[in-house]
């Protein structure tokens, strides 16, 4: 129990300190661009009403979920294919490196040409940006399946779908999760950016609207909300990862001690 309390204290100490510094430093600030934190917090309740949450925050999160899910399916699926077959890898590797090097936001104008400015465009942008870390990590994970383990599976006639489900995917899971984690932060960034350039709702859209109408405290409160959402998503992600990769963390801990 005391350990949990102590960990909680450690985790909260720095955020609390930073918030206090901000609070104190901004107290009595006359700058309209950097209002006091107290002002920002006082508008938060009025700005982020249930109505606004369903009108702006929910669509953003749905777009993120859609794009991220598509990217995960495509990334893992293609990654397994590319990682398994040497010929496919040799064929696709240079192209993949090129696509990975293209900064995803630059795709927005291009995708807009094809997909318009609706949800399809935003989901496509998020998926197009998220897919690369998932894909490349899956390829690496699949390639790195232990030779002895693969031979064991083969000697027991474990092939095809069974091999994929019980050998390849679990073995590559730590790498796949590393890719999913990178993709999550990219996804949040792209969610906001895609809503900034052409949209009629969404978190990114709202923040830009506030900024353009000089509702500065409201703009700041939007940024704080975005940060909080990102933080919560990462907490959820970590919880899922801990559960799914419990064996991996245990294995590593046992190697460290043995």
């Amino acid at each position: 129990m005391t350990r949990i309390v102590r960990r909680l204290l450690y985790a909260l100490a720095l955020p609390a300190l930073l918030a206090s510094l901000w609070w104190l430093g901004s107290r009595g600030s006359q700058s309209i661009y950097a209002p006091p934190l107290s002002t920002i917090l006082s508008v938060t309740d009025d700005v982020w009403t249930t109505d606004r949450l369903t009108r702006d925050v929910l669509p953003s999160l749905l777009r993120l979920t859609g794009g991220y899910t598509l990217a995960a399916l495509a990334g893992i699926g293609l990654g397994v294919l590319i990682g398994t077959y040497r010929a496919v890898r040799a064929l696709t590797e240079p192209v993949l490196e090129f696509f990975r090097a293209v900064p995803p936001p630059v795709l927005i104008p291009v995708i807009m040409l094809f997909a318009g400015i609706g949800d399809t465009m935003k989901v496509t942008v998020i998926a197009a940006g998220c897919v690369w870390p998932i894909l490349l990590n899956t390829v690496e994970g699949v390639r790195a399946v232990d030779g002895v383990l693969a031979e064991t599976a083969r000697s027991y006639g474990i092939t095809g779908v069974s091999r994929l489900r019980r050998l390849v995917l679990p073995a590559a899971a730590p790498q796949i999760f590393a890719g999913l984690r990178q993709a999550l932060s990219i996804g949040i960034i792209l969610m906001v950016i895609s809503e900034m350039s052409a949209a009629s709702n969404g978190l990114g859209f709202t923040v830009v609207q506030f900024q353009r109408s000089f509702a500065i405290p409201e703009m700041w409160s939007g940024i704080l909300l975005l940060g909080t959402i990102g933080f919560l998503l990462s907490v959820v992600f970590q919880a899922v990862e801990r559960r799914a990769l419990a064996w991996y963390h245990g294995l590593r801990a046992s190697k460290g001690s043995g």
Partner: peptide, 29 residues
């Protein structure tokens, strides 16, 4: 590989599936 033959490898730690419990490892084949 034939169902009539089974192999026990030298590298035991690498020939067992670390994401499966002992029972599932034995059952998998």
């Amino acid at each position: 590989p034939r169902p009539g033959m089974a192999v026990v490898f030298q590298e035991y730690s690498r020939s067992l599936f670390p994401w499966m419990r002992v029972r599932d490892n034995v059952e998998l084949p």
